[in-house]
Amino acid sequence: MSHRSKRAVPVSFYVLAAIFGAFVLFLYGPMIVIFILSFQGPEGGLTFPMRGVSLKWFMALLAQERTGDAAGSFVRSLFLSLAVMMLTTVISVTAGLGFRRRFSGDRALFYFVVACLVMPGVLISFGIGLICQIIGLQPQWYTTALGAQLTWTLPFGLFIMFAVLGRFDRSLEEAARDLGATNWQTLRHVLLPILLPGIIGVAMFGFTLSYDEIPRTMFSSGGSNTLPLEILALTNTETSPALYAIGTLTTCVSLVVIVAALVAIVLIQRRRSGKSIRRIDTIGKGS
């Protein structure tokens, strides 16, 4: 150990450490500040110093006195994200499986999907809003906004499935058929369970991408706002720490989703590497 400590640390270490430190500060600094300020005392304002500590601003959200329809928009966002998550998962998994064999037009379809990622989101929602106006339809968060968000989450889901399926050993499928499994049984008892960690990943992406999506929802969600839109509106009108309380709550929801997904994936892989083994380095080998 003494030898190591004596060795000179190169200058590049400090430069890179400083860049990394700045990155972490930019990533988590604002979140932590908002988190702290959301517990501002009843007399406190939008900035430091803290004047006591309270849950008043969280209560204000429920009361809907000054904060518009925060609770309603949260429920809408939750349902929308869950719907997007489910559709993304089902469509991405089936499309990913479909893309494993060549079919006529597979290339064209693939580029079409890539185009969805490249297209600016605002244009998509604006276009949808415009078309609705022309044909006299009322945009709704559960119809047009749902579709607009899927143009964003489906390519992501499909790419994750490509990565997941790329590592899948096709002989497992052949083995299942060899052992008497029908196509459906092969899917149900071999493909889906083995791909489950990746599928959970797709679902998690689908949920979180939808949950904080602004550009694609902006003109396509009609009269009722989703949560990100509500927060955006509040930043213009609201002047109380209730704004921060919304931020804290929504971040918590995202964290719960992400942590739940990761825990599920780790548990599956740990089970596959054998329950009795608890060493971290063997967990990854399970798949």
Binding site: S171, R177, D178, V190
Partner: peptide
């Protein structure tokens, strides 16, 4: 006849055991 109906059983080079 599909593979699942044939009176054959194959042992794969990679063994292809189901990891789950």
């Amino acid at each position: 006849m599909p593979a699942r109906s044939r009176p054959t059983a194959m042992m794969f080079q990679s063994y292809a055991l189901f990891p789950h």
